[in-house]
Design a protein around this nucleic acid. Structure first.
Lengths: 227, 227
DNA sequence: AGATTAAATCACCGATTGGTGATATTTAAA
DNA sequence: TTTAAATATCACCAATCGGTGATTTAATCT
C-alpha cells in the first residue's frame, strides 16, 4: 500500500489523493517555473529571484530553467511580460464621459491606483525593482505604461488644457509618483510620513482627500490662467 | 634609491612623493573604512556594500572591519548616523518670516529638496535603501526626518491651517513623496514620466512650476474652506 | 638595542552563488 | 519488446559571500 502510494507519487499522478497533470510535461514545467517566479517576487522581492531559489520553489531542478528558458533573465522576463500592470488605467477600463476634461476619471484612476498599489505586493515589488536595476524587460514594462498614459493625455487632457497641457502632465506626474512612493514607503518603513499614518484608515483617507483636492484645484486653476 | 622609495612607501609615509599620515593608525583606518562605505554607496548603492568590497575600496584587510566596528552593520550604521540628510529642511536653515503660514518657505524647501535629491547620488541611494530593507540605522534616520518635519508642522503650518492641518500634511506628504520618486525614477529608468522628460531642463522646470502651483492653490483653498 | 603591544595581513573556513556535462528516468514510437 | 527521444536529476565546477584564528609587521616604551 505504501509502496503503491510512493510509486504513484513519484510518477506525479497523485497529489492529496487526486490525480494531477503529469509532471513530465514540458508546458506544465515551464508554467511551474513561471509561477515560482511570481511567488518569490510577491513574497520576497526581486532580490530573492536566484536560480536555486526559483528551482526549489517550483520543486524542480534548476537545469530546467536553462533548458526551457536559456537563462534566468529570459525566464523572469517572460514572466514580467505576461503581466499587465496598467489595466486599470486604460481609457476603456471605465466607460466614462470626458466632457469634464477627464477630471472625474482622473480622480477615479488616481484613487484606484492608490489602493491597487497598496494592496498589490507584486506591483510594489516591481516598482521597487524598476528603481533599483536596469533590466530590458522592465524597460519594456515602463514603455508600456508610458504608452497607456500617452493615449489618455493626448486625446483627453491635452485638448482640454491646451497650452497648459504640459503643466497638467507635470502635476499628474507628481501625484502618481507620490502615490507610488507613499505605498512603497509604508510597506517597508514605519508607516508615518509627514505625520500621516499610512497604516491607518484615517491616514489613507486624508491622502485620498488630498489627491481629490489637488486635482479639483488643478482643473479649476489651470484651465484659464495664462502661463 | 629604489629601495628607499619602496621602503618609505611601505611605511605609508609617502604618496606622490609627499608624506601623509601614517597608515598604521587606528583612527585613520577607521575613517578610511567609513569613507569607503560612502564611496561605494554613492557609486554603486547599498547592494554593493559587501565586506570584501568595502575592505578592497579602503585598501585594507576586511578583518579590520570586525576589529574596529564589530560587524559590517555597525560600520555602515556609524556611517549613516554621521550624516545629516535633512539639514536644508530645518527651520533655522533659512531665517524666513512665517507670517504667510510658511507658504513661501514651503515652496522654497520643496524646490530645494527637488534639486538636492536630483543631484545627490548618496541621498538617492539611501532613499532607495530605505524602501528596500529594514535596517535599524535607517529607522533612526527616518525618525530623524520625521522629527525635523514635525517641528515645522507643529509650530508653523498646523496653527495656520487649524482644523485642516492634517489635510495640509497629507498634501505635502504626496508632494515630497512625488519629489523622491520622480528623482529615483529618472536615475534608473528612462527619464520620461507622464510625458515629462526629467532629464531635460525644461521638463524639470515644469515639475518645479507644478510644485509651486500646487502649494499656492493649497494655501488658497485650504485656509478657509470647511472640510 | 631589545621587549612589549598595537595594527594589519594572511590563510583558511563553510555556505551560497550561477552555470554545465553526464546520467538517469519516463514516455512514445517502431 | 526494443529503441529513440524527450524530460528531469545528479554531481560537480569556479567564484564569491561573511567571518575568524594564527601570524606578521610596525610603533612605542624601557
Amino acid at each position: 500500500m505504501i509502496v503503491l502510494f510512493l510509486l504513484l507519487a513519484k510518477k506525479g499522478k497523485m497529489k492529496d489523493g487526486i490525480s494531477k497533470t503529469p509532471s513530465r510535461n514540458k508546458e506544465n514545467t515551464r508554467q511551474r517555473l513561471l509561477d515560482a517566479v511570481g511567488e518569490i517576487l510577491r513574497s520576497e522581492g526581486y532580490q530573492a529571484l536566484k536560480v536555486n531559489q526559483i528551482a526549489a520553489t517550483a520543486g524542480l531542478d534548476k537545469k530546467l530553467i536553462y533548458n526551457y528558458f536559456g537563462s534566468k533573465d529570459n525566464l523572469v522576463g517572460e514572466y514580467i511580460n505576461s503581466k499587465d500592470f496598467w489595466s486599470n488605467v486604460k481609457a476603456d477600463s471605465i466607460p466614462a464621459d470626458f466632457s469634464d476634461g477627464g477630471k472625474n476619471f482622473t480622480i477615479e484612476v488616481l484613487l484606484q491606483q492608490f489602493d491597487f498599489v497598496r494592496t498589490s505586493a507584486e506591483l510594489q515589488k516591481v516598482l521597487l525593482w524598476r528603481l533599483s536595476e536596469e533590466q530590458p524587460f522592465l524597460r519594456l514594462m515602463t514603455q508600456n505604461q508610458e504608452n497607456v498614459g500617452e493615449e489618455l493625455f493626448k486625446h483627453v487632457m491635452d485638448p482640454y488644457f491646451g497650452k497648459n497641457a504640459q503643466d497638467y502632465r507635470a502635476i499628474t506626474a507628481i501625484l502618481v509618483a507620490g502615490i507610488y512612493y507613499l505605498n512603497l514607503y509604508a510597506s517597508h518603513n514605519g508607516s508615518i510620513f509627514c505625520g500621516i499614518d499610512l497604516g491607518e484608515t484615517a491616514g489613507r483617507e486624508k491622502i485620498r482627500q488630498a489627491l481629490s483636492f489637488l486635482i479639483h484645484k488643478t482643473y479649476e486653476g489651470l484651465q484659464d490662467e495664462p502661463k
